[in-house]
Amino acid sequence: MNRLFPYPVLTLALFVMWILLTGFSPGHVLLGGLVAALVSRTMLSLKPEPTGFRPSLAIFRLAGLVLADIVRSNFAVARIILFKPAERHSGFLHLPVELRNPYALAVLAVIITATPGTLWVQHDARRHVILIHVLDLIDEETWIRFIKDRYERLLLEIFE
């Protein structure tokens, strides 16, 4: 099984994408399966590092948290744009991280940037500090604790 499909998740994702694009019919299931199995094997020659990914329930908790936060901050940013509150100021923020796994850091980067109001700017790999720009910077410590408690703890759980 592992020899036939070295990257089962990638193979499955390619197959699902093929079916979604072309429609469900026996011919396309066969063709899509073949393409997915062959194309996912090209990753073998790239030799990616092992991700240290541990499937657990924390993934669903993280996904739910992120979805709720995205909707909430959509309203927050819309309020800022429409009503222009006077006492708002934006600024940069230095966030020290404990995450070392590059894949986990990538997930954190996507989460922070996809959420309106926060933007990941830079990661200092030597000092393990992330530079974040925040649209509504009330208090640095509150933001740092917010990101660490909500996302980083769960990401440490998910990635080795």
């Binding site: 909707v71 744009i81 996809a114 959420t115 309106p116 109001g117 933007l119």
Partner: peptide, 14 residues
């Protein structure tokens, strides 16, 4: 500019 970067994320998410 750094404030404006936040604006299009409204369209790309919700």
């Amino acid at each position: 500019f750094y404030e404006r970067v936040h604006a299009p994320t409204l369209g790309t998410t919700l």
